[in-house]
Simulated scan of single mutants.
Amino acid sequence: MNPILEHMTGLHTLTDDVIAMDLLINAKNGVRNYAMAVTECATPEIKQILMKQLDEAIDSHEKITIYMMERGLYNPYHFTEQIQLDLKNIQTAMNIPS
Rank of each mutant, 00 (worst) to 15 (best):
S60R: 09
L85G: 01
L73S: 08
D22M: 15
L24F: 05
V38E: 03
M1Q: 09
V38W: 02
V31N: 02
M8P: 00
V18P: 01
E6Q: 08
L23C: 14
E40Y: 11
T9E: 08
V31A: 02
F79L: 14
D59A: 07
A27K: 04
A37Q: 00
Y34S: 05
I4G: 06
T80H: 09
I46K: 05
Y74Q: 01
M68C: 09
K47M: 13
G72E: 04
L87P: 03
Q91K: 14
T65C: 10
M51L: 13
L11T: 10
H12K: 06
L50H: 03
D55P: 03
P44D: 12
H61K: 13
A27G: 05
N89I: 13
A93W: 02
T13K: 14
Q53E: 12
L14E: 01
N2V: 02
L14N: 03
M68W: 07
K52S: 11
L85K: 13
D86S: 07
Y34F: 15
V18T: 07
L73D: 10
A37N: 00
S60T: 07
H61D: 10
Y77V: 08
I90Y: 13
D17I: 06
M8E: 13
E56V: 05
A57G: 00
Y77Q: 12
E56N: 11
I58D: 12
N95L: 08
I4V: 12
E70M: 10
I90P: 04
L24C: 02
A27M: 03
L73G: 11
I96F: 13
Q91V: 09
R32D: 05
I58R: 14
G10F: 08
I83G: 04
I19G: 07
A42E: 15
E81M: 05
E40W: 10
K88T: 09
T15N: 03
K28F: 00
I46P: 00
D86V: 09
L54R: 12
L11N: 09
N75A: 05
C41M: 06
D55Y: 09
A35R: 03
M21T: 06
A37M: 03
Y74H: 07
C41T: 06
G10V: 11
K88P: 02
R32N: 03
K52Y: 07
T92C: 14
N2C: 12
Y74K: 01
A37F: 01
K47H: 14
Y67H: 01
N29P: 02
G30Y: 04
I83D: 11
M69L: 06
M8W: 10
R71D: 10
I58S: 08
A37D: 02
D16I: 11
T43K: 08
S60V: 01
G72Q: 06
R71Q: 12
T15P: 00
K88E: 15
D16S: 11
A93E: 02
K88F: 09
I66M: 07
V38K: 03
K52Q: 11
L24K: 04
G72W: 04
A42C: 08
I58K: 15
M8G: 02
I66F: 06
R32W: 06
D55W: 10
M21C: 07
Q84W: 14
T65N: 08
A35H: 04
L5H: 03
I90A: 13
D55C: 07
H78A: 14
G72K: 04
D86Y: 06
I58F: 06
Q53N: 15
V38Y: 02
K28M: 07
K52P: 00
I49K: 14
I25N: 12
A20W: 07
G10K: 11
N29K: 14
